[in-house]
Nucleic acid binder design. Sequence first.
DNA 1: TTGAAAGCGATACCAT
DNA 2: ATGGTATCGCTTTCAA
Lengths: 357, 357
Amino acid sequence: MQRKATAQDVAKLAGVSRSAVSLVLNGHGDGNIASESQVRIRQAAKDLNYKPNAVALSLRNQQTRIIGIVSDRVISGPVDGNIIAGADAVARARGFVTLGLDTEQDEQRDASAVETLLDRHVDALMYVTVGLRELRVPAGMEKAPAILANCFDSRGPGHLGNVIPDEVWGGAEALRHVLAAGHRRLGFLTGPLDHPAVQHRLEGYRQAMAEAGLPFPDGAVLPVGWDIADGFAAASTALAAPAGERPTALLCANDRCAVGAVLAARGLGLQVPGDVSIVGYDDEERVADTMVPTLSTMALPLREIGAAAMTRILASLPRAARKATAGQQPDRTILEGEELIRGRFVDRASLGPVPAS
Amino acid sequence: MQRKATAQDVAKLAGVSRSAVSLVLNGHGDGNIASESQVRIRQAAKDLNYKPNAVALSLRNQQTRIIGIVSDRVISGPVDGNIIAGADAVARARGFVTLGLDTEQDEQRDASAVETLLDRHVDALMYVTVGLRELRVPAGMEKAPAILANCFDSRGPGHLGNVIPDEVWGGAEALRHVLAAGHRRLGFLTGPLDHPAVQHRLEGYRQAMAEAGLPFPDGAVLPVGWDIADGFAAASTALAAPAGERPTALLCANDRCAVGAVLAARGLGLQVPGDVSIVGYDDEERVADTMVPTLSTMALPLREIGAAAMTRILASLPRAARKATAGQQPDRTILEGEELIRGRFVDRASLGPVPAS
DNA sequence: TTGAAAGCGATACCAT
DNA sequence: ATGGTATCGCTTTCAA
């Protein structure tokens, strides 16, 4: 912590009292301070490169302008941190800063992370998960305004509000694109059936089939996992059927799974998308866009989720930084309910027309 | 910022003054406060779940116990945040917290990120990059103790100290494993030749060849890029040669590039590692370990780099948190020089013996 | 052994 | 219009 100019220094240079400095620099000077004093004060502040000490302000205002973010494996993990990036962008635009603690998927660290943040007197809390999932809200989170991003309260609705991707819509939208390309023999390489995102997407798949007046082919659902090897194994099986029976399009649980599916197709001597189309999910950077062939995929609106969650939490804070105690009540109703955000389908090379056969 | 018990509350409950509370709770009570008062104070603190207000402490001690981290695309990016995780683990173990700002590769945000951090009066700064590179140190970084992780000062040595992976050793070590498997016809799918990591690894490759008494095959170096598509293109060319001439092992710039190489091999009807061995670099989570086949690769010691950088920066801080101003000088010499960290070779399935042919 | 008081930096009320 | 002063919560020196 280096030493910088204080209000006192500015006051001395301008030949006034520090109260005058404070008044002027906060815009309350107009009815109170002689305008020529105001000029001198502003000049002095500029000369000294004066910035109010954030720590002193925090103490004085009982507001740190820090939003604490607990994440399960977003910061340290190999996956996209765009939720946090989106949240941070909103926070910074409003003079807040985010303080992130990653538990690295160790549930025991949840409560201690919250405690650390609370000890630092963050103004609000946000919990971010790497994948959509149920969250056992850590102890202590009720002690500050809080919101969940990409996860939902295990105690059910009516507790902590949250922002999540609209997976029902996402599943439906992805399938709509596949159907529009003419595909009818499909394979759904989903993640585990007990995963909430998988359930939602399946519902979306059913919706899209119904919209198209098609029956839903239950046998086409192949629950696997989220990794390359999972996609490889499932696709190897699904594509082993003779040309007239095998699926002409595979909808995968995510882009890595799709990579495995492409690998499997190539192993069987099949072209993508010539013989089989493959659609991913997530639009993972440096995977979907640089894969061979590039992956058509349903993008997850991660940045938007983070931004929406941060927007809500900031709106719940008492206005104006000052008078946090006496002033108006924080508007907690903003923190209730679930907000669904839609992604968008990214059309690249791996989805093509139905093979002529 | 919720209201919590203050030292005043503890004092009242224990029937003493707040100075007594402070003395006792900081271990300075022994020669000063009656031992029975001490017991009462400790009990009262426990009853009220008293924790000193971190903000007030920061103001009083002129030390926030926050380390600011600026990163170019580590938090928001799709790549491993393990450097930050390693740094954070060290910091938290010593009662510090890290405040990370990601510039998302926008150089213009560099200085403003540093400024934001400095405005928050962080005790020290760290700059983390997603890949090894030269860094034009942002303005303002000299205003606090600072260190570089995974990058190096563009002004050359003797300026900001740094911690980076030992890429020369890494290149040599990877090649040693390939040579030990018997391979002699090699292909080096490196990143761009002007990239520092590529230059270092190339030097390592030469070393390992020399150690083995082999000439270095300049024609085997195929500089490409870092993505799947790059690896695919380069490997497609390299492996197009007839069986007796084509390389039996490919050393790739990173794991994604290796994925592209595997894709290319499969496209040519070649087995990995049956016909050609493929070695990655980075040991990227959820790629190297779940690829089909799983990737043998040179792991980058990201966590260790973060931990080492944080260790050095904390060691440079004035001891004991108190008497920051008057007390001893910060030990800046610790922040000088370059520290090289070695990774380790991870032996999985993609590296095999030379094909019988 | 204990408590009163100064000070970290900024703000806002209240006399002047 | 201006400046003195209490306050935020804590630490530490100095008197009593």
